[in-house]
Amino acid sequence: MIPLRVLALSLWVLMTSVSGAIAADLMLTLTNLTNGTYFTPLLVTAHDDSADLFEPGTTASDELAAMAEGGNIDGLLGLVGGIDADTIGNPAGGLLAPGDTISFTMTTSPDRPLLSVVAMLLPTNDGFVGLDSFELPTAAGTYQVDLLAYDAGSEANDERITGGGAPGVSGIPADPGENGGVSGTGVTTEESNPTVHIHRGVLGDGQAVGGISDLDHTVHRWLNPVARLTIDVP
């Protein structure tokens, strides 16, 4: 009798632990799908619906602008309470190059069921790859979600590589792939939509020196999606 009861108890414990009522370890895999655009350090965080890293159609926070213009995720990390079990900062240990894939795990809890992801697109003025409050699956399985390119709306897309990565400073910090040009006159000096929006893409040109853009139209253009995220729920 006693062994049976023990067995029943262990079965109950086992069933409780797989029911999803407690923390779950997720395996996340993210691939940069672009032709020639790097991702600066990624911020991946699970949260509830009381806050967002970003919201299309609203003005970017200073912290979001710092990420989108210069790749700095420190401010956003501060907003979400720092790195912990369900906030991952810089999993690639730096840049995620075009075509590269990074895998990492995170432990989520039912009270933070939404997933958001951001990283600056380099070289751009204030473009970023984003996932906005994606509802995390709880049933076991493999899930795939494609990520889009957003424009923070905080800086004019002049497409000039000037080293300007600090918030409020015009220009693009760098092109890690070293395909950029110099001395472009600038595509524009204005940002026509100052809220977060879907990025219109870059124009670029075919001139390494001069022209309107320091970006190369055969290298730096993209179409959505710019990243693919796979979520494995055990």
Partner: peptide
């Protein structure tokens, strides 16, 4: 080319400046 599969950046075309 890059020797890896990516989302295509789209064609440029002569009308958009690829001579």
């Amino acid at each position: 080319d890059q020797d890896r599969i990516a989302i295509h950046p789209g064609v440029i075309s002569a009308q958009d400046g690829l001579a």
